[in-house]
Simulated assay, not measured.
Amino acid sequence: MAYILPNLSPTLLLPKDNKLSTIILPLPSVSFFAVSTQTKLEPPPPRGVAQVNRTSGSQDKKEDQRNDFYVNLGLAVRTLREDLPSIFAKDLNYEIYRDDITFKDPLNTFTGIEKYKLVFWALRFHGRILFRDISFDILRVWQPSENMILIRWNLRGIPRVPWEAKGEFQGTSRYKLDRNGKIYEHKVDNFAFNFPQQLKPAASVLDLVTACPASPNPTFLWGPVDAQSSSWVEFYRAIIVTLDRESLVIPQDCLATCS
């Protein structure tokens, strides 16, 4: 019987009493039209919903910025690993640095990407002139904090003059990164030296440091400059003189030769 009832006419379900039949009336069509019209209208969104959307948009922006930082950080580490061992053979990839990058060593400070490029040009140019063989090796790469990259390196060279023995020394390069993952500071410090005892080189900029066992922290002090010279100190002085010449214009063919 249950499946038959929906198909029955409403008039058949009414009692035979005429009084009751007059009381039960179908809803007017106007009411149905009014209800259907109201259901189509949507009220404006409350203020709370709009505020939540703005907050989520700000969070998405911060998340995108963090993602960009880690992408650029990974690119910086990978580029440094690839570029530094060949600094005496070819130029660097400068996309990982900011235009206002600052370069510091224990005696000097230079600012600007053009000066920074000149540092590595001078390394290649004067390194080939003063040394028969010179190389740069990476010993360790690590991050003491999220926005800093530390690289422990070793520099070896054989001077062209026959009375000087080959020598090597280590140092630390500290690269600081901004919130976008770009390098804005490069600081060189923490020098340690290893020269043959039988042929100790003449006093040089390298000898201005009190040698201690290599460590990631700057533990070496600079003393007064000695007047004597060697290939190492001439190498350092040549780089500084090159950087101090503000009006220096390097010929393009020389750049091509040393790049």
Rank of each mutant, 00 (worst) to 15 (best):
R156P: 00
S31P: 00
K117H: 08
Q38D: 09
E164W: 01
D60K: 10
A211I: 07
M148S: 12
S31G: 00
L25C: 13
P43C: 13
E246M: 10
A214S: 09
D83M: 04
K19D: 09
E185Q: 03
P44Q: 11
T111G: 01
S231V: 03
R54Q: 07
K200Q: 05
D60G: 00
V205P: 00
L41E: 15
Q228I: 08
W232M: 12
R78P: 00
A165R: 00
K62R: 12
F220W: 02
S173Y: 07
R179M: 12
K200D: 02
L208I: 10
G167L: 01
T210G: 15
A50W: 11
H126T: 01
V35Y: 11
D105N: 10
I23S: 06
V35W: 06
E114W: 03
Q51V: 12
L248G: 08
P196N: 05
Q38G: 15
I183G: 01
R152I: 03
L41S: 08
Q51T: 05
W142P: 01
F235W: 01
V49R: 14
K182C: 10
S259C: 05
S230L: 10
R78S: 14
T102G: 05
K182S: 08
I240C: 03
P6Y: 04
L199Y: 07
E114A: 08
V35S: 08
E95H: 09
V141Y: 07
I158D: 09
L255T: 08
P10Y: 11
N72K: 15
P162I: 09
K40H: 12
W142E: 11
G157W: 03
L221K: 12
E168R: 02
A165Y: 01
T219I: 14
P45T: 05
I149H: 01
P201D: 00
K62T: 15
S9C: 11
P46C: 12
N194S: 11
K176W: 06
G171M: 04
E246P: 03
K182Q: 09
D91H: 09
V249K: 13
D207W: 04
P159W: 02
G171H: 02
R54W: 10
G157F: 02
R81T: 13
L73G: 02
P216Q: 07
S247D: 10
A256Q: 14
L8K: 11
S135V: 03
E146Q: 14
Y3H: 14
I4L: 13
P15T: 04
V77I: 15
N53C: 08
L155I: 09
V188E: 02
K104V: 03
A256M: 10
